[in-house]
Every structure is written in C-alpha cells, then in structure tokens.
Nucleic acid binder design. Structure first.
Length: 801
RNA sequence: GCCCGGGUGGCGGAAUUGGUAUACGCAAAGGACUUAAAAUCCUUCACUCGCAAGGGUUUGUGGGUUCGAGUCCCACCCCGGGCACCA
C-alpha cells in the first residue's frame, strides 16, 4: 500500500508553521548555530534542481542541529536585482518590481512545499528599499575610507545591446544576452579597492574551515607572486622603466624590454621615438582588438620604439624597447624585462623579431639545457652571469637584487572590483555631482536613494544607464552647498546585495543600522555555508572583503564571515548534459513533489550520488526512494512494534545506523547515509516484531531526510506528546556496535581461499590452528613449505608458501 | 599550458589506516498473487570455464613497491570543473 504523501506533507508543513518550529531565537541560552544557503535569484523559471540539492543538504544539517540542542538560524531570502528581470521588463514593459514580486511568490510557495525548515520571519529581499538602504550605506563607508573611487577604464561594450557589460557578463568574449562579440570602450566607472585586502583575504584562509579545493581556488584567484621591482634607465632620458619580475636571477639574460601598448611612457617619450607614427598605429590596433581576438591570436605582435634604448642595470648593456600587447597593462607595472632564453612568451617574440637570446640558467646537473626550440623555464644553475656564475639560481637572484639595489615586491592577480553597471534594476550608487563641490556622497540620513519609477528600461545609445534619461530624478541638490547637482546614474552590480545579506538575516527589520551589534555578536560567524562552486571566486571573495571591511570599521564582530564553506555538485539532465530549456531536459521539482512527494524527492536528491560531484538525473531513481519510504510506512502498519519486544540483533543495527548516519551527515556523505537507512529498513522487513525503542530511534534519524513521514509515523505511535523534530538526536552505544564474532579471512599467497566465523580477539596461534585445520586449506598447503604467516587481528590470516 | 576533481557491473554508485571489490539503489530476467494490469512479494544478476563441486579473470592503460593494491609510487590515456600571454 502506498501512503498518502500529499495529505501528510501538507498537514505537517502547516503544523510546523503554526507552531513556529523553525524560528531562531535571538540571545537564546542554547548554543547558536547559523546554517546558510545561497539565497536564490527568483527567476521566472522557478526553483531548479541545484537549489534543491543545496537546500536539502543544509536543511538536513539544520534539523539535526536542532535535535542536538542548538538554537538554529536557517534563513532565506531573495537576491532579486538582476538582468533577466530587467530584460523581461524591457520586453513586456512590466515593472521589474512586479515581476520580482510574482517570482518570489512562486519561489516561496515552492520552498514551503518542499518542507525546508527556513525561518520565514527573517525573509529578506535585496530590492526592498529598506534593504538596499544599507547596501548603499556600506558603499558610503567604503567611499569615506577611500576604498571606492571613480576611474576611467576600458569596459566591455556590446554594440548590439548598447550596454556596458561586466566581465562576468561577457562570457568568452561574447555578450551573454545576444552573443555579439564584445568591444572595448572607455568609461568612467566606480571601482572598489578589493586589492587593498588581497593579502588579508589570502592569509585568513588559514582561519577558516573551507573545503580544500575552495581554499585553493580562492588562493589562485588572488594569485600572489613574490619577486622584485627593478628600474631600467632610459639612455639619455630622465624616465625610467619599472618592471616586476619573479626571476631576477635571469637579469643577465634580459635582452630587450616590452611596454604594454597602454603604458604612459610610450606617450611620454613621444618626441624621442623616431618611428612614432608606426608605434601609434600599432597601439590603436591593439586597443581595438577585443579580448577574444587578443587571446585567440597565437602569433605575438609588437613594434620597436626606435630611437630609445634601455640600460640593463646589472651590466650596463643597451637593449631595445618594444610595445607589444602580450604585455598586459593591468598586471604588475605594465612593463617587463624580457628574457627569451627562460620565458616561452619572450622566446616566441624574440624569434619573430630576431632578437638576441642569451642563456643564463643551465639545468641543475650543470649541462647546458637545450634552448634551440623552446625556453628553459625550470630552476637550475646560473651561467653567463659574471660573478654569479655556477650558483643555485634562486640564491643568485637574491644576490643580484642586492647588487643593483632593487626592491623585493609582491604582486597579485586580483584586480579591483568594477562596481558600476549601466542598468536600471540595481541599487543606485548614492553619489551626486555638484558643479561647485564636485563629487559629493549623499547624506546617510537621506538613504535610501530610491529607484525612480520609469516607463522604459531600454539602455541609451551613449552607454549610460536608463536612469540618465529621468531628468527629474537625475537633477537634485548638492548635499554640501545646496546648489544644482546631478545624481550618479550607474547602479551597483548583483554582487552588492549578496555581499552582506548573511548579516541582515540576523536583524532583518532594523531601521537604525544594518544589524544590531549585540545580535551580530550572538550569531556571527556563519557556522556552515553551502553553495555552488561557481560562486567560490567572486561572491565568496566579495563578501569576505565586505565583511573584513565592516570588521575594520568596527561594525561587525568577526573578521571572517563564514567558518565553514562546502559546495554541492551540479544536477545534470538525463544524458549527463546541463539542464536547459533548449535541451528540453529540465526536471521540475513541482512535478516530483506531486507524483512522489517531498520526502521521496529529498531522499533521492541525497541518494543520487556523492554530494560534491556532478550527477545526471535518473528519472527512475526516485522510484527507489519512493519504494523505500513506502516500506517504512508499511512496516509501521504491518509489523508488531511494541515495548514488549526484544531483539538484540536489530538493537545492534540501529546503533550502527545512528553512528553511520550521524557521521555521514557531518561529512556530507548523504548518499551513504540514505543507503544505511535503507539497509536498516531491509533488516526490519525480515522481522515480525520490532522493539518500540528501536523504531523510535529510527524515526528520529530518518526525520532530517524525510521529515513529513517521520512526523506522521511518530504520531501514529501515539505515546509521545512532542513532535519528532523536538526529540534529541539519539546517542549510539559503542558496546552494542561491537561484534563478538567476525569472519576470519584465510588467504593463501594473498588470495582469498576460505573464511570462517570465529570469536574476536583470537591470537595468531589460534587463528593459524583454525585455518590449517580447514580441509580446503590443508589441501592447498599440502606438500609445500610455509614461508611465513601474516596475521591481522580480527581480520585475516595469510599463509605464504 | 597551469591548478583542482574523477575513471569500479547494463546504469548511479559503495569500499576506515593498503586487508572479503561490486554495499545500497535503478534497470533486466524468471516466479508468486490477480480474470488481467498496476502495486507488492520471492529468486537470479561483474565477466568467464564447468552438469556440479570448484576454478580463472576483473576497479582507464602500462610498469613498480608489498605476503597482499580500487587504495601507495612512476609514466601515460580519457572525462568534468576552474584559470589562462599574470612576467
């Protein structure tokens, strides 16, 4: 018989909600536990399977923590600013606010139908002016500390959509929306100085318990490299070229220099450069190249700056200077010392332009590494380096830095965060421009700067935000002098609201500050944060940065926002491809809930495979989860479950299951936790009678996975007043888990030949006697001499002939 | 190119420190119940030789260490993810 999941699930969801089961209590005497999942972007498509995987996992953790006696905060909200909503508004003319409202209503209904134990009293929405008021407030604090500044930079420009795109919106050099190759355009942009925190963001990874791969990805993104800053004089000029290098040991092999096309020295030296028109032509070509073209090009290009020479500081040699776009203006000093013998890119360039290649590092063994076909980039022993010859190259590097009086420096790949977007549906940046006073921040008491009502959301031809067209909004008064001023019309990126949302959950209705400090002290840091791997670099880094900044100005109590970070793998479509509408392989959670029930959906989501790996959806797989729950139901209907029943065997099994399921949840090995529950139920199925205490323990450990059916069956037992969710997580008895007997494996020459059940703790001698007494083993050993015997206690005996 | 993962039956996957490979689930086949179907229950199910008892082979490929390797070491191949002219 199948149980009626629809009826049961609705019943208990209503019960939990009515009785405030999931409410987190500020300042409770219980120990606190803050479980966090990434809040969804409420798209028109509704919840997808990825949300389910992450939310189910953390819901299991949250429910287990409550049973363990913690005061749990498990909140949810909406990261609702974003392009799809804006695009929809452009297409339909419906205000993004209305679209957002509709979508969040759908999401809320879906999330509730799945029985997630969120504290709905703390629901937040980044597009709510009462929320983004504080996003703007944080921006102003950054501004006041000089961490937000305006600068002309090249942005990604989509000529078809006529809009500036963030790097993350220019996927593979193409516009995310229309696929047109992205061009470059110069524009004044707001930028946040995240690089100021590069070292802290890197170093403090030691303070947190993130999965190792997440730490590695963060560290790679920050990309610290240590080296030296070296000045090269320009012959007959007061200008110098400063370079950053990680290989000062190769300085004797530096045979030319390269400036990035955008380097200011190229312009400064205009009058000295004899072929300037040629140089200018090259620079303009480079500028107009898209990122796509620039990376697709295999051949190196460049042009020599004729008429000027640089001087290698270590030996006074004159060397030529080039401008080439393989040198990036955005990393280091935008200029390099080129060592073609020991850097493949320089090697390629030198070959093309017929430049000198001097080998200065030999391989460790001393022989000259072959540099006829490619550069030798490994460590080794110095050569052609005057007094530094024959040394370990790293040591020589130190000495060379000393000789020329260069400085040791550090560089990061991490770039400052471009914070401006030319969109409507984002937080307005709270700055005005006064004719007299210049750039002036909006007064904090005037926050929020609300988005104005508009009729059209199309971007303008000039690349400005649609807000620029709203004259009555743009024209304002200067907060300083009261004179005429204009508002900043750019808005903030999506990442803004999500950089601090975990703080707002702590005090979501506060209108005096973004959150009360005492409450922050009680709840922070987030104890466990789970989310997608795709947010490891940007979102995770941005929110760590904001939290660190807020810590530094004394408004949050912890330097790191998240104690622990884990990540779920993607749920793929049936064939192992990404789920997408165009492929038609999207699985809708609503259908699953309707057909199989929430509990079965949750159980299968967890059983489907290792949590951190990508897994293809199997439409039949969920039937297994559904059958399992039906079995659980049927046991409660058909078997005798009573206090009068005793069964040591099943007692042992439940203790094993408690241990395994508990440990598996902590390690996010949900698939084996579910399999443990299944094994236990299969054992019960063979019995006629089950001890009541055992059955109760089972329902408790089942509850985090399948909370609805567990509640119903708990109620059917009828002798407990409180819900199963209010029970204590059971303890297992180590003594009961221990087996008295075990299967002794008997191997001959390492091959399994026989096994016998015997009592634990037998000695090697006893085991030998047992093994050699077996007829089968006797036959195998007969006529040969025993060389040695390996004995592993309580496991095996191996007879080597 | 670099950095992370991963490769085990027809499929998703299990397998503490090296110690019974293939748990659990799906699919499949046979059977029971049923007028029939669904549901449920029972049985079989890595490959292979054999009537059977029993034997041989097997964790991407090739080597190695070991009494013993899915697990450790070396080389290589393939797949997924991230970064990518970062000096």
């Amino acid at each position: 018989m199948n149980y009626n999941h629809q009826k049961i699930e609705k019943k208990w969801q209503a019960y939990w909600e009515k009785n405030n089961f999931n409410r987190a209590e500020d300042f409770s005497k219980k120990p606190k536990y803050y479980c966090l999942v990434e809040f969804p972007y409420p798209s028109g498509d509704g919840l997808h399977m990825g949300h389910l995987r992450s939310y189910t996992a953390m819901d299991i953790v949250a429910r287990k923590r409550r049973m363990e006696g913690f005061n749990v905060l498990f909140p949810i909200g909406w990261d609702a600013f974003g392009l799809p909503t804006e695009n929809y508004a452009i297409k339909t003319g419906i205000h993004p606010k209305i679209v957002t409202k509709k979508n969040t209503d759908t999401f809320r209904k879906q999330l509730k139908s799945l029985g997630f134990s969120f504290d709905w009293d703390r629901e937040i929405d980044t597009t709510d002016p009462q929320y983004y008021k504080w996003t703007q407030w944080i921006f102003l604090q950054l501004y006041k500390k000089g961490l937000a500044y305006k600068k002309k930079t090249t942005i990604n420009w989509c000529p078809s959509c006529k809009i500036g795109l963030a790097n993350e919106e220019a996927v593979g050099g193409k516009c995310e929306r229309c696929g047109t190759p992205v061009e470059k355009k110069e524009k004044e942009q707001w930028i946040l100085k995240i690089t100021e925190y590069a070292e802290k963001l890197l170093k403090d990874l030691n303070l947190v318990d993130y999965w190792e791969k997440i730490k590695i990805q963060q560290a790679n993104w920050i990309g610290k490299s240590e080296g030296a800053s070296i000045d090269f004089k320009i012959q007959g000029s007061s200008f110098k070229i400063q370079v950053f290098t990680t290989r000062p040991d190769t300085l004797y092999g530096c045979t030319y220099m390269v400036l990035s096309p955008e380097h200011e020295l190229v312009q400064n030296l205009k009058s000295e450069i004899s072929n300037f028109s040629e140089v200018e032509k090259y620079i303009n070509e480079a500028k107009n190249k898209s990122d796509l073209q620039r990376t697709e090009e295999k051949e190196k290009t460049g042009v020599e700056l004729k008429g000027i020479k640089a001087i290698n500081p270590v030996n006074g040699k004159e060397i030529p200077i080039f401008a080439a776009d393989y040198v990036l203006s955005s990393y280091g000093t935008g200029a390099i010392m080129a060592v073609p013998a020991h850097d493949q890119r320089d090697f390629d360039f030198a070959r093309k332009f017929g430049l000198e290649i001097i080998q200065v590092i030999a391989s460790k063994s001393g022989e000259k590494a072959d540099i006829s076909k490619k550069a030798f980039e490994e460590e080794g022993t110095t050569m052609n380096s005057e007094e530094f010859d024959g040394m370990d190259n790293r040591k020589a590097g130190e000495l060379i830095v000393g000789k020329i009086g260069a400085k040791k420096t550090v560089n990061y790949k991490l770039r400052d965060w471009i914070f401006s977007r030319q969109h409507y549906w984002g937080e307005p940046i709270p700055i005005v421009f006064c004719e007299k006073c210049g750039e002036v921040p909006v007064d904090e008491k005037d926050l929020p700067v609300k988005l104005p009502e508009v009729k059209k959301y199309e971007p303008t031809d000039t690349g400005e935000s649609p807000l620029a067209a709203i004259k009555e909004w743009v024209n304002t008064k200067c907060p300083k002098c009261g004179g005429p001023a204009k508002r900043e019309t750019d808005t903030m990126p999506n990442w803004a609201g999500s950089s601090w949302y975990f703080l707002r959950y702590i005090d979501p209705k506060n209108d005096k500050s973004f959150a009360d400090f005492k409450k922050l002290e009680y709840w922070t840091p987030v104890d466990w944060y789970n989310g997608g791997m795709e947010h490891t670099t940007l979102h995770l880094l941005y929110s760590r940065f904001w939290n660190k900044f807020l810590y530094d100005i004394g408004v949050v109590p912890t330097t790191e926002p998240y104690k622990k970070r884990t990540s779920q793998g993607m749920i793929l479509g049936e064939g192992g491809e990404k789920m997408s509408k165009s492929r038609g392989n999207v699985v809708n959670p609503d259908d699953l809930v309707k057909e199989f029930g929430t509990d079965a959906t949750r159980v299968y989501e967890m059983f489907i495979g290792p949590f951190d790996q990508a897994i293809a959806w199997d439409p039949h797989g969920i039937e297994g989860a559904s059958r399992f729950l039906n079995k659980v139901w049927n046991i409660s209907q058909e078997k005798k479950i009573s206090e009068d029943v005793n069964n040591e065997e099943i007692e042992k099994e439940i203790n094993k299951a408690i241990k395994k399921v508990g440990e598996d949840i902590e390690m996010m090995r949900f698939n084996t936790a579910v399999s443990t529950l299944m094994i236990f139920i299969n054992k019960c199925y063979e019995l006629e009678e089950i001890p009541l205490s055992v059955w109760k323990k089972f329902l408790i450990i089942l509850a985090p996975f399948a909370p609805h059916i567990s509640e119903e069956l708990w109620q059917i037992i009828g002798d407990e007043k409180e819900s199963v969710s209010k029970q204590n997580w059971p303890k297992y008895d180590e003594k009961l888990i221990k087996e008295d007997n075990f299967d002794l494996i008997i191997q001959v020459n390492g091959k399994l030949r026989h096994k016998i059940t015997t009592s634990k703790n037998i000695s090697q001698k006893e085991a030998e006697e047992l093994a050699l007494a077996e007829e089968k083993i006797k036959n195998l050993v007969r006529g040969q001499s025993i060389k040695k015997i390996i004995f592993v206690k309580d496991k095996l005996i191996n007879i080597v002939l």
